[in-house]
């Protein structure tokens, strides 16, 4: 019972220990302001990573999310600034386009039985390319609603606040936890990631679930794009380059197995916070190059994959007859 949650516990322990170390070194670190900023700065990453968790749980992968974020910011900027749209209608269109894009990739993966890696890699190029077709420049978004939404926040004593992006991320994470463990869709995702053929024999609607999970990932990448545009106040086709890899990292550090079937949404959330924590530490330190973030995350990722491997060996070795994972 305990070792099922062990990867999750280890991840949480890393976050807590890391935070305590930071707090010990910098007296200002342990404040609501820092925590609030941590959530705001990583909101788009967290939202995207939730979609990625679902995709990976189902045994797939989605490499297109970073490109979809970039495309969404450009689409919003072009619609609002050049098309004169109201931001809310632009948001609706962006979400529909991003979700539809994901659904289309899911359909291709299911109908043609293609590897998700290849299909979403192609999707990544297409989405990134479409962004450049719309505009190659960074377009500032100056609509008044953007300023209002930027100010929207739950404020606490001592300068801490939960901004709209942070609240959105927390809402998405909460909804995703419910979805993963208290809905049939969630159970079907785990089933699909466990063994596709068995899931099919047990009556899981494989096609519908596959399309839905990529649509959801696209939709969340679109939402992350909206958050990203709120955060930066601009649309740029090169935005969020490489974010797909950051999200995969967060998912794996969070204890989800890359082969699918095992893992928790909440772990991904903690994985995102660990990445944010390292970044914040380097900002506080001031003397370290920001590339140390990447090195630290690289080491951490490696350690977590080794941990998973070890756990899996212990796990299957102990339970009598080893089952195929």
């Amino acid at each position: 019972m305990i070792h099922r949650f062990l990867p999750l516990l280890v991840t949480t322990a890393v976050l807590v220990v890391g935070f305590l170390l930071c707090a010990a070194q910098f007296p200002n670190f342990a404040s609501l302001r820092v925590v609030g900023n941590l959530l705001t700065d990583n909101a788009f990453l967290g939202i995207t990573a939730v979609g990625m968790t679902f995709v990976i749980l189902s045994g797939g992968i989605d490499l297109s999310v970073g490109a979809v974020i970039g495309f969404t910011t450009v689409l919003l900027a072009v619609l609002i600034e050049q098309g004169g749209w109201h931001p809310l209608s632009a948001f609706a269109v962006a979400l529909a386009v991003a979700g539809g894009f994901g659904a289309a990739m899911g359909a291709v993966i299911h109908v043609f039985q293609m590897p998700p890696f290849i299909v979403t890699l192609a999707g990544m190029f297409v989405a990134r390319g479409l962004g450049f077709v719309l505009s190659t420049d960074s377009i500032p978004i100056n609509h008044p609603l953007y300023a209002e939404l930027g100010d929207l926040a739950l404020r606490f004593d001592g300068g801490g606040k939960l901004t709209l992006p942070a609240l959105l991320m927390l809402g998405v994470v909460a909804a995703a936890v419910v979805c993963a463990h208290w809905t049939r869709f969630g159970a079907n995702l785990y089933a699909l990631g466990g063994n596709r053929q068995s899931a099919e024999l047990m009556g899981v609607p494989v096609g519908r679930t596959t399309v839905a999970v990529y649509a959801l990932s696209g939709l969340l990448a679109g939402l992350a794009g909206i958050v990203f545009s709120l955060y930066t106040g601009a649309g740029y086709s090169l935005a969020a380059t490489g974010v797909e890899l950051d999200t995969i990292t967060a998912v794996v550090i969070g204890g989800t197995q890359l082969t699918g079937g095992y893992g928790y949404v909440i772990g991904t959330f903690i994985g995102v916070l660990i990445q944010g924590l390292i970044q914040t530490y380097i900002t506080f330190d001031g003397s370290l190059s920001s590339w140390w973030t990447k090195i630290a995350i690289g080491v951490l990722l490696f350690v977590f994959i080794l941990l998973q491997k070890g756990l899996l060996a212990v796990w299957t070795g102990r339970g009598g007859t080893p089952a195929e994972a």
Binding site: G194, Q197, S198, M202, E324
Partner: peptide
């Protein structure tokens, strides 16, 4: 072989696709 899902719990394997629901069958929660 290959008929159930080793990664799901015993209960989930027994009730996959026909889980007891609350708050409505279609959009309710397991």
């Amino acid at each position: 072989e290959v008929n159930l899902l080793p990664n799901l719990s015993v209960a989930e394997n027994l009730f996959l696709g026909r889980q007891p629901m609350r708050f409505g069958m279609r959009f309710g929660l397991v």
